[in-house]
């Protein structure tokens, strides 16, 4: 197609806070203000942040559950097929389908399936690996893994308007507000 999407001249506006409480408050205010494409960055996981940002529930648990089910069914089927159909052997007079023997393998493959699904699902949903992200263009962002808390309102947000949004962020008493190069 000949149509070329217009490259936005900015990724968004990044506000820097010195306390987790201030970030939490800012995230809540941004959601109440109607912003939807907002992301927050903190040096450690903050459980309350997801709620403050109004994020929908993570789908990782469901993916893990499905992975576990598939792993378990696969493990049991493998045991059943090999022990009762492909290579039936009389071991101490036990029936070919001696289910107690199959449980350890079923358990292991359940854990394996769940763990793999969890890992892959988490990476996929987070769009990882991601070697480049615009927020790294802001030098102050180095402290996001140390002692600073950041809130970014992205330019793709329909409500984003460079001056009004910057003014809104300034009103939250941040340490500073920086424009993020795309």
């Amino acid at each position: 197609m000949a149509h070329v999407e217009a490259v936005p001249s900015t990724h968004g506006l990044l506000a820097e806070f010195s306390t987790p409480g201030a970030l939490l408050h800012a995230a809540e205010r941004a959601r109440l203000e109607g912003y939807r494409h907002v992301d927050a960055y903190s040096p450690y996981p903050m459980e309350e942040l997801g709620e403050a940002l109004g994020l929908r529930r993570s789908r990782v648990p469901l993916i893990t559950l499905i992975g576990g089910f598939l792993g378990g069914i696969g493990g049991y089927t493998l045991e059943y097929w090999s022990q009762a159909i492909a290579y039936p052997m009389n071991v101490g007079g036990r029936p070919y389908h001696s289910w107690p023997y199959f449980i350890p393998v079923t358990f292991e493959t359940t854990v394996l399936g769940a763990a793999l699904a969890c890992f892959v699902g988490m990476w996929a949903l987070n769009r990882l690996p991601q070697p480049y992200h615009p927020v790294f263009n802001v030098s102050a962002f180095d402290r996001a893994s140390c002692d600073r808390f950041f809130l970014c309102i992205e330019a793709r947000d329909p409500k984003f308007e460079r001056y009004a949004t910057a003014k809104f962020l300034e009103g939250l008493h941040p340490v500073g507000v920086t424009e993020v190069a795309p």
Partner: peptide, 12 residues
């Protein structure tokens, strides 16, 4: 509990 059951079942 299952480990106990399976070991007893296996050893018989």
């Amino acid at each position: 509990n299952f480990s106990q059951y399976m070991l007893v079942y296996a050893a018989n």
